[in-house]
Amino acid sequence: MALTIKEQLSSPGGILKFLVKYNTIFIFILLVIFSALISDVFFTSVNLSNLLKQVSGIGIISIGMLIVILTGGIDLSVGSMVALLAVTFAILVNIFALPLAILMTIVIGFGLGSVSGYLVAYQKMAPFVATLALMTIARGLSFIYSKGSPVTFTTVGGQYMSNFANNATLGIPNIAIVFFIIVICTMVMLRYNVFGRLIIAIGSNEEASRLSGIKVNKYKFLVYAISGALAATAAIIVASRTNLGSPNMGMAWELDAIAAVVIGGASLNGGKGTAINTLMGVLILGLIGNILNLLNVPSYPQQVVKGAIIIFAVLLQRFESK
């Protein structure tokens, strides 16, 4: 039987083991305590809600990245997809009714993701290469369709969306609520849904999955399509926050998303990773940025710290697997 938390803590070397096992949450809590001690402004609702707003977009694509990584793949196109789909949404919302514009954007995201999915699953292209190509294509298209400058929302629908994105419900920013709902749905899917079970199985042993009669290609195709749809959702949120869609959005977000998933303990070989830990990874990355901003640390040293945290987190996970 699985040990309870209490039993784990009281077993020999228990505390250390416990900390190693839940290292992501542990790092997160440490960072929160550290931030609270070091800055008076940290625990203000303005700062916290800013933090949540900042991480929501990257958070949503990180979830897409997680399910792709669970199958043993990778999706480098998500950052550029956010730009292309933000521009797309801005154009669409200026033409169509809001619900239709949202739906169309998500469908287009799903379609673009399907292209990567098709190349990886059915053409046996390396995920890194297929999504690298899509990344370039999406960025290029976003500049073409926007003619190189941001597309501003001009309609009532756009205004409504912008209000939604900048307001809060019960003190929690609306866009963070969208992010959390996606995290919870993914959590449930990975634990209790056949889809989630099978993508984990595929990532942990693709050949055994194939020989178990699992439709490996179908599921590999689907994870990229879903990642595309999630990139669309992120794009809508990010565009709505600023009232416009810009081809410069989402620069290098794919790298932050990968970092968040990895900090969350997922294995790039596939088969290992959870939504809650990816959420922690997203929050940890966001927190580091936030606290360094509060301390007025310029952005270049921030990058160094981020990199160091990634190394630290992954080294810590090595203990766990031993």
Binding site: N205, A208, S209
Partner: peptide, 8 residues
């Protein structure tokens, strides 16, 4: 390699 999922 082909029978079980070792990490699961």
């Amino acid at each position: 390699e082909e029978g079980v999922f070792l990490p699961l």
